[in-house]
Design a protein around this nucleic acid. Sequence first.
DNA 1: AGCGTAGATGAATCCTGGC
DNA 2: TGCCAGGATTCATCTACGC
Lengths: 382, 382
Amino acid sequence: MGVIEKVAKAPQAAPVDVRTRKWVDVLPLDSIIQQDCIEAMRALPAASVDMIFADPPYNLQLGGDLARPDGSHVDAVTDDWDKFDSLSAYDAFTRAWLAEARRVLKPNGTIWVIGSYHNIFKVGSAIQDLGFWILNDIIWRKANPMPNFKGTRFTNAHETLIWASMGEKAKYTFNYRSMKTLNDELQMRSDWEFPICGGQERLKKNGTKVHPTQKPEALLYRVMLACTKPGDIVLDPFFGTGTTGAVAKRLRRHWIGIEREGGYVEAAQERIAAALPLDESAVTTMQAPRQAPRVAFGTLVETGYLNPGAVLTDPKRRWRATVGVDGNLRSECGAAGSIHKLGATLQGAPSCNGWTFWHHETPEGLKPIDTLRQTYLLATQP
Amino acid sequence: MGVIEKVAKAPQAAPVDVRTRKWVDVLPLDSIIQQDCIEAMRALPAASVDMIFADPPYNLQLGGDLARPDGSHVDAVTDDWDKFDSLSAYDAFTRAWLAEARRVLKPNGTIWVIGSYHNIFKVGSAIQDLGFWILNDIIWRKANPMPNFKGTRFTNAHETLIWASMGEKAKYTFNYRSMKTLNDELQMRSDWEFPICGGQERLKKNGTKVHPTQKPEALLYRVMLACTKPGDIVLDPFFGTGTTGAVAKRLRRHWIGIEREGGYVEAAQERIAAALPLDESAVTTMQAPRQAPRVAFGTLVETGYLNPGAVLTDPKRRWRATVGVDGNLRSECGAAGSIHKLGATLQGAPSCNGWTFWHHETPEGLKPIDTLRQTYLLATQP
DNA sequence: AGCGTAGATGAATCCTGGC
DNA sequence: TGCCAGGATTCATCTACGC
């Protein structure tokens, strides 16, 4: 593994044509090119890599400071690399690097790009305009996203990945069997759940995170396992702290990283050097735990298992409450809240399991609403 | 509920200006306009609806329905002219109907558009270019998606919705409390799970489905509950078999549907006629505190719920403060101010909710003064 | 050692009404 | 238009520390 500071400054031994500044015959495999990604890709030969994984800046456009309800400060992404003058400037940047990426990809290669609603529509639109053929969009559902502290929107709990081939008729690699095995013999779906990158995996220096947006290795692992073969070449034009390189090394794929910031390059080098080829046990630990799906009471209302206006009672019929459109319960005395909250309030208890406390009338008598939840699960789970 | 076949052919009684072909003073509420959606929206007054929900076609095999490229520049990057042509036509069509939608929306209104990877990137990109401000993208995770029979890709198990306001500074309706109640007291996330539309809900004629992409009512239910108020006007420019109308009627919102195909119009009419509005009381949702009557802390002192001289502390008893006659707090260190200000000052935080920060001693232990406010509200509200 | 609790934190376009 | 002040607002996970 080496680091090439700039193609133009590469040592004479490096296989670069001085006039064209292009890599000849041999690619800078398993090394980091420290340079702007568009320039660096221009120096790579056409049709030379099997996959591109790209995590470009999202163009977040954050406002002022944000504080949590407890008053603490939210550490936002304020880095210069995420600043663009305008939406159209971002658009131009996106089209420029995607065009180079397309040139560098083999005809049977595929590209992956990750983003959020801030940028993914611009990315996807450019991908289609450039002639790529979208194969799937994949949702990374975050197990532990940051909440919406001000209660102004839905919790932004996912990111989107686009997977595309070189064209409508292009061939591509998809390891269907691997994915099905990884998913307990069920077809792998387009929504994947992983925790955000934290704990031991998160790179830190002097106690602070090295990169603000480090991606979990599990995500890259699934991407590479699904869409490359051992020995394939994976290019990451926004290498950051090298998640792509670390996973590629473990999965015995070749990688090329492009990254402008020296600090990130250094951290990536160290990290990848320490990465070990995969062993069996690691495979199992990479899998997201299968957990019983959680069903909110409101879901039963939305899906018609229980209608707004229905009356619930406790098992002893001491209290009656009416179901509201949003799944709230309103008792005759005027108190209102969720099934759990109202149950607790009426009993004067600190907490209450609304699922077993509240009952509804059925032809077979009073039944806990928990039975409705079971019915819903049976109907919707495979 | 009525059906207007075409604005130009509307009966004389209809409030349409013959020269401008526009609706005047009165909107065609709770009715279906059978016409092309762009023309039909042109006839509606500007800034007249509170929400637009759109489920546009995403079939890229364009027929005569979609506008041809209107002189927009030709990008020479692609070599597949057929595909570029249809992609460009779809783009033009998308921008045309979105521009009309924007004109028709109130300044504080919001738009929802649903789509899949075939079209959602074009839609989102156009939404941003037109000046809308994306608030969230929402993932509808299908509980029971159709499998990928060929095993060539990931199972396409979700669709994407975009929710946007009229601009960065625009206000919008978001019933945060309702969503949190609906989700068992956890913030509603950006990924929603619903089954696909089937069973009794799926409209059928002679045993075959009436519409190929009928959306589940549960989806529209959550959208409307989250982002509209009772009595609001919801416009659906791609009405299909009227899911939007049926849900709007149940939730006591007004609706306007635009649909070109007579067969769908007929099915929608029948369906919506059969839908029953929910009882007034059931439509009541959980109120955000700021919509509840405001109670000043001083009021609690004036009315004797808390006496001047009472001592308050934070939950960890790190700070003590005495209640003044005017509802001011004075800490032992001499700092003074409103319950909010003093809390913020002592913690060194930018702000503080005094109602939950300050506690008072009760026989049951330390309790936040917010409970006093609840008691006061229960005692004084009808 | 093991358990329980407190504190920190993550790609976030994060307030509103009155003067 | 901006400024000021009231007051509303968080979930899952990991680490550190004390008992």
